[in-house]
Amino acid sequence: MLWASKADIGDDHSAVPTPSANSADAGFARDMTVHHQQAVEMSYIVRDQTDNEEIRRLAYDIAQTQANQRGMLLGWLDLWGLPKSSPDGYMSWMKGGRHVGHEAKAGSLMPGMATNTELARLRGLKGNQAEVFYLQQMYDHHMSGVDMASACVKQCEVETEKKLADSMVQGQQSEMELMTDMLRKRGSEPR
């Protein structure tokens, strides 16, 4: 078990463990905050690039959900007194060292994340082209987010964080199904 310290909290003086800086709990919280921040950014970009209410509603839902989850994860890092970035780099907490089955493409921080060039491209597209590109990017983003959250469900030890990670898996898989349908309506598919 990777626990750094314990604090007595509550009337029963039960010990509440604090994850160590190199635990899966801390690593997931740090990495997912970065991953979620880009999903929020992409969602706000597409909101301004289309008038399609279905896309704007999905983008709004993703931005709000992931911003709220990001706040919880950052709050836990603060509560635990742990750094918000890892000196070991991204994904080092995952067993096997890296994202299973996925590698980060050149120019992105983590698997599934868009590069600066791709973000600039999204900003330059309008209407249906912006919608398709956003849906494809977000599908990839969610696929890697599901992998990361599934790893936390298996490796993390803080039960509340495991529950949040499991809800991320369920929610993002559902959104991936919706995005696949939305892409089909636009004559496209996930990449």
Results as ranks from 00 to 15, higher is better:
2 L>H: 14
4 A>R: 15
6 K>Y: 14
7 A>G: 08
9 I>F: 14
10 G>H: 11
11 D>Q: 14
12 D>I: 09
13 H>Q: 15
15 A>H: 13
15 A>D: 14
16 V>E: 15
18 T>P: 00
19 P>T: 13
19 P>D: 15
20 S>F: 11
22 N>T: 14
23 S>C: 12
25 D>K: 13
25 D>F: 06
26 A>F: 08
29 A>T: 04
31 D>A: 09
31 D>R: 03
31 D>E: 11
32 M>F: 11
32 M>V: 09
34 V>K: 06
36 H>W: 14
37 Q>H: 12
37 Q>W: 04
38 Q>V: 04
39 A>V: 06
39 A>F: 02
41 E>I: 08
43 S>I: 06
43 S>K: 00
46 V>P: 00
47 R>E: 08
47 R>C: 03
48 D>F: 05
51 D>A: 11
52 N>M: 02
52 N>L: 02
52 N>I: 03
52 N>P: 00
53 E>F: 02
53 E>L: 07
54 E>H: 01
58 L>Y: 00
58 L>F: 06
61 D>G: 01
62 I>S: 03
66 Q>D: 00
68 N>C: 00
68 N>K: 11
68 N>A: 14
69 Q>C: 00
71 G>F: 06
71 G>V: 00
73 L>M: 13
74 L>K: 12
74 L>A: 12
78 D>I: 03
84 K>R: 12
87 P>I: 10
91 M>C: 09
92 S>W: 08
93 W>N: 00
94 M>D: 07
95 K>F: 04
96 G>C: 06
98 R>Y: 13
104 A>R: 13
105 K>F: 01
108 S>Y: 06
109 L>Q: 15
112 G>I: 07
112 G>Q: 08
112 G>Y: 04
116 N>P: 07
117 T>V: 02
122 L>T: 07
123 R>H: 10
125 L>I: 01
126 K>Q: 14
126 K>V: 05
126 K>F: 08
127 G>M: 01
128 N>C: 06
128 N>H: 08
128 N>L: 10
129 Q>S: 11
129 Q>M: 12
129 Q>E: 15
130 A>E: 00
130 A>F: 03
132 V>M: 06
134 Y>P: 02
136 Q>T: 02
138 M>E: 01
139 Y>V: 03
143 M>V: 10
144 S>D: 14
146 V>W: 05
146 V>D: 01
147 D>I: 10
148 M>I: 11
149 A>W: 08
150 S>I: 03
150 S>R: 11
152 C>W: 04
152 C>D: 08
157 E>T: 11
157 E>M: 10
158 V>M: 13
163 K>S: 15
164 L>E: 15
165 A>M: 07
165 A>W: 01
165 A>T: 06
167 S>Y: 05
167 S>H: 15
168 M>E: 14
169 V>E: 06
170 Q>R: 15
171 G>Y: 11
171 G>T: 12
172 Q>W: 06
174 S>V: 09
180 T>L: 04
180 T>M: 07
181 D>T: 09
183 L>T: 06
184 R>L: 09
186 R>M: 07
189 E>S: 13
